[in-house]
Design a binder for these strands. Structure first.
Length: 294
DNA sequence: ACTCTTCCTCATGGCATGTT
DNA sequence: AACATGCCATGAGGAAGAGT
């Protein structure tokens, strides 16, 4: 849209794009235009990816981004959006679990929205699925009153995923308890792609509504509003590491392809304070004894 | 209250480079 | 040769704002 507005100055139509002889220089001009309008680096990088695709499907040969002028112009913007490694705090997963337990006590009083929030939160904690993946999931009942969540992962190159939740001794935080409650209230939620059916609107909840429901629960925990729904993944993974899960366990659990790297970069929110404490601890006594002896 | 757009964040395959 | 690490391009995810 933005490129269209920029391109369609008087006397120039989108059709004229086909007549361009040197798409690269047009792209460069457009970047300069964006920079002059103080666009963010994110915006510029995203725009150029899209425009390159636009030219490609219009029949031009692929725009090279390596070793040419476009590369040098983009370098600054690409560098600016790289993830900065820093220590970020994360709320404790235990607080979320506590709220789930509290809500379970008064399960008949809470609203449909809050109920949905609890189920999404519980599912995300124990499956490490993303919100969008949870929202397009279907539920299947399995043996010994366990549940299977069947979804597909579009991010990356993974296909379908089936997560199996079994009964667990921590009943009121478990996905089995929450899913059973949710589905028993309305059996038609067992129908494929109908898991998040809302009786209020008579249709499945959207990702947007799911996000809002989760934020309602996060509010009950007094989690800072700046945290996103994905932070539940972070909190879950951070706790996994804290309780001593091995690299392999975290890998399998999170279904990351390059688990350790991705987790270190985006999910492990350890402040390292505990490790610093331990580094700083040394045996004072023996030092003193040595002095006395000498 | 809903949909669409914009901005920022997460994630990966494929390749390049380094080490044993 | 096998194993290990790092970089790049780019598309999906999520939040917030705009428009209706």
């Amino acid at each position: 849209g933005q490129f269209g507005t920029y391109w369609q100055r008087p006397g120039r139509t989108l059709r004229d794009l086909r007549l361009i002889e040197d798409p690269e220089s047009k792209v460069v001009k457009y970047i300069i235009h964006l920079q002059q309008n103080e666009s963010t680096s994110n915006h510029i990088v995203e725009n150029i990816a899209i425009i390159a695709l636009l030219f490609k499907v219009s029949g031009f040969k692929e725009i090279e981004t390596q070793g040419n002028i476009l590369y040098w112009i983009m370098k600054k913007n690409v560098a600016a959006i790289k993830k900065v490694q820093k220590v970020e705090p994360i709320y404790s997963l235990d607080n979320l679990l506590k709220v789930l337990e509290n809500q379970a006590q008064k399960i008949d009083e809470i609203s449909e929205n809050a109920l949905m929030g609890c189920i999404i939160v519980s599912t995300m904690i124990f499956s490490v699925l993303r919100l969008a993946e949870v929202m397009r999931a279907s539920a299947v009942q399995a043996e010994y009153s366990s549940w299977m969540i069947d979804t597909s992962i579009w991010k990356g190159d993974d296909g379908g995923v089936i997560v199996h939740f079994r009964k667990c001794k921590h009943r009121y935080t478990s996905s089995v308890f929450w899913l059973s409650t949710w589905i028993n209230k309305c059996r038609s939620r067992l129908i494929q792609n109908n898991l998040w059916y809302l009786t209020k609107t008579h249709k499945p909840a959207t990702v947007n509504q799911g996000s809002k429901a989760v934020h309602e629960i996060m509010k009950l925990v007094n989690i800072d509003l700046s945290y996103t729904v994905t932070s539940i993944r972070s909190s879950s993974i951070t706790k996994q590491i804290a309780i001593g899960a091995t690299k392999q366990q975290v890998n399998r659990f999170t279904r990351h392809k390059k688990g350790p790297a991705t987790v270190a970069r985006f999910y492990n929110k350890n402040t390292n304070d505990e490790l610093r404490e331990r580094l700083a601890t040394f045996k004072r006594k023996s030092l003193i004894n040595k002095k006395v002896n000498s």
